[in-house]
Amino acid sequence: MAETENLNETSAQIKSSKGEEDIIQIVGMHKWYGEFHVLKDINLSVKAKERIVVCGPSGSGKSTMIRCINRLEEHQQGQIVVNGIELTNDLKRIEETRREVGMVFQHFNLFPHLTVLENCTLGPIWVRHTPKKEAEESAMEYLERVKIPEQALKFPGQLSGGQQQRVAIARSLCMNPKIMLFDEPTSALDPEMIKEVLDVMIELAETGMTMIVVTHEMGFAKTVADRVIFMDEGEIIEQNDPHEFFDNAQHERTQLFLSQILAH
């Protein structure tokens, strides 16, 4: 318990010191898969250093929404501005945005033919044109931060799920992103490995990284998030700071969702 309090204190400190400009701005965004209207009138602005948790039942469009932020999914209507660049079909803009936005996937998506270290240096060397030696040194620093420097020369297939996800986080961080997106980072993990990944994410949050996390880990949301967003059927139903959100949910659907997810 004492630990949680501690974390609350640090996150409160960061909250007070964060900048005020919007690093992500989504205005009236819609998306369809064929005839199916997946995202409906999404409006969301995220300030630099803000930490947002997105939750909601499966199929509610949470993953699709954050995948629009780095254009892994295309939106058909509305406007998305990331780090001052509006996302359009222009490949140059997309690449520029992706350089500043790191993403961690549910299934890790590490490159199985490359070692852990090579996974981490691929982006810096080819996208940022960092000299190989420098890229390796910085990759080792990040691997130390996620507490697996000793696995650097192994292949992803030789690691446990939790270790792989930590490598995936380090790989994203190696690109020095301004924003980190997490798409259900712990959903594919065994229960005993979830904690090691969440610990890394909490530490990352403490450094002041802008984070948008799609997750069902409500404990994580309570400790780390500045704001919790609840989505259902392609709409943002409700957003609030975690205390208000969990103790005093406004919308009926949010209450139902929370009662189901917190029941056990």
Partner: peptide, 11 residues
Amino acid sequence: GQYEAADAMGL
């Protein structure tokens, strides 16, 4: 996921 991870990295 491999295509997506490579894209997300900015390659």
